[in-house]
Design a protein around this nucleic acid. Structure first.
Lengths: 132, 132
DNA sequence: GTCATTGCAAAACGTTTGCATGAAT
DNA sequence: ATTCATGCAAACGTTTTGCAATGAC
């Protein structure tokens, strides 16, 4: 098994992601990392994001809008993509019941092993509804 | 607003998708349509799949495995992607409660308007768990 | 006749990879 | 000294697009 070596680029990528409250794409993250590391390459950003996902330090959000998004918040929560403004919202389950039901619904498919951190919802957000 | 004209290619794409129980990608669908329309182009398949999604006749499944998948089953159900075998399963909510809780959890974000047909779950399926 | 749809090829997009160089252990 | 990580550029797979020709209405 491969042993990770320290790299300041990887640290910076993780730190940058942790400091954000949005859910940036690799490219958006690349743009902000460049302020600190003007020579960093996009390939390095992708490679390290993949590593960080593998080690469970960050999470990948594939919402189907073309590019993957990333999130350093590893607490149990869902994501909601507004199909109108394309913004991704964090979505905490309102009640323990909601969570429990999700797990129940999942039992038949992957008993005890569902990765419920990755549930994706789609719709139209409050903001967009009110603007109409 | 654009008015759709009849096209046998579009009909065939929809019919082909309706006849399948899996969740094919555009490319997989293209391969099977080619048996009936040897000259159809991949661009046409993509264009029509997009049209059919817009009109609500079929559904797009973006599970983050590289390519979008499509589904002609418009009944309320979720999808589950096994991260090991990469198969997509249909996932009927086990109980009305599970569904209700999902809707409840969604109220704060898109009251009454969440597209709950598109909830995606991720994990490891029973088959893959048993094989270990 | 008008305008949507097609096939084709090229381009666009997000992401991965090969390789020679550099950094960490 | 070994082996992982980097920057760069090229390649990859998926999807979109421009265009002239065809088909639906």
């Amino acid at each position: 098994m491969k042993v990770l070596k320290y790299s300041r680029q990887r640290e910076s990528i993780k730190a940058s992601l942790m400091s954000r409250h949005d859910h940036p794409t690799a490219d958006a993250l690349y743009a902000s990392i460049r302020e600190e590391f003007p020579n960093i390459s996009l390939g390095t950003v992708y490679r390290n994001l993949n590593l960080l996902v593998e080690t469970g330090e960050i999470r990948r959000i594939s919402c189907g809008d073309g590019a993957d998004h990333f999130d350093a918040n590893m607490e149990e929560h869902y994501h909601f993509l507004c199909r109108e403004c394309r913004k991704i919202y964090d979505m905490e389950p309102e009640t323990a019941d909601a969570l429990k039901s999700l797990d129940t619904a999942a039992q038949g498919y992957a008993p005890g092993l569902i990765d419920s951190h990755s549930v994706m919802f789609y719709g139209r957000c409050k903001n967009c509804i009110e603007k109409k």
